[in-house]
Nucleic acid binder design. Structure first.
Lengths: 128, 128
DNA sequence: CCTTGACTTGGAGTTAACTCCAAGTGTTAT
DNA sequence: ATAACACTTGGAGTTAACTCCAAGTCAAGG
């Protein structure tokens, strides 16, 4: 697959794809005779994984470390597991913060709803 | 309350508190005779609210708009409600992304767990 | 053979959200 | 009253994560 196809498929700009590769966020992609990127299935899996992790806010730096560990082979399995466990913990903490905010938003929106209703009632009364 | 007390109480740097005020993220705080900030209860409530919203990733720009609407009085109640509803929608979407990522992380961690177990078994077998 | 157009690289620019700094003023302790 | 210190403002600097750009390469069509 060319970078144009991958870009379209995963909705990531070509610049971002090249950037990700440059900084080691995905393992380096094969080039054809002309030096042009030719993404394999494997490459695409990495992109999906990274995209998923990024969408949840995992920092690029940490993901680069993970990819680096992965490339060092089986000796790093334990380290990779620990890394993911650490990130999971932080992710859960963020989700809890967001849950609290969601509840506050719900409460505020409801309050506004009641204020609006009250205003409408007043309006009706003044029409009588 | 002085800025030092507020800073300690809410774990926000004095710089951040002044920055928030400067950009209109909280309504402007009263000054005493010497021109020094004297935070009221009301100010603190704003800080708590903003801190909560920020912790869930709501952009500063949107919160500035909300504060601006608030200061314009009752005529903006409907607009404020709509703004919060919009943000709630985006928040929920982000939480769903994170939930997916969490599930993937759980799955990966479990896989690593099994790999480790398998390795240990192989090790034991080779000891026999 | 020359142009068009997609691709390459390295590096500069952008945005959000702080974070730090310099220069100046006011308050407090000795 | 003078040094030490907290506070003020406006503006510059920083960081993460892109995003854009310039200069160059290369294959294909007219």
């Amino acid at each position: 697959m060319t970078i144009a196809e991958v870009s379209k498929k995963f909705d990531l700009s070509q610049d971002t794809l090249r950037y990700y590769e440059r900084i080691g966020l995905i393992p380096s992609v094969n080039r054809n005779k002309g030096g042009i990127r030719d993404y394999t299935e494997e490459d695409c899996k990495w992109i999906v994984f990274i995209k998923c992790m990024r969408s949840a806010g995992l920092p690029i730096e940490v993901l680069i470390e993970y990819v680096g560990l992965f490339q060092q082979g089986d000796a790093t399995i334990e380290a990779r597991k620990e890394l993911l466990i650490g990130q999971r913990k932080q992710l859960i903490a963020r989700m809890e913060d967001m849950q609290k905010t969601l509840e506050l938003l719900n409460y505020k929106i409801e309050s506004y709803e009641q204020t609006v209703v009250k205003k409408e009632k007043e309006l009706k009364r003044s029409e009588d």
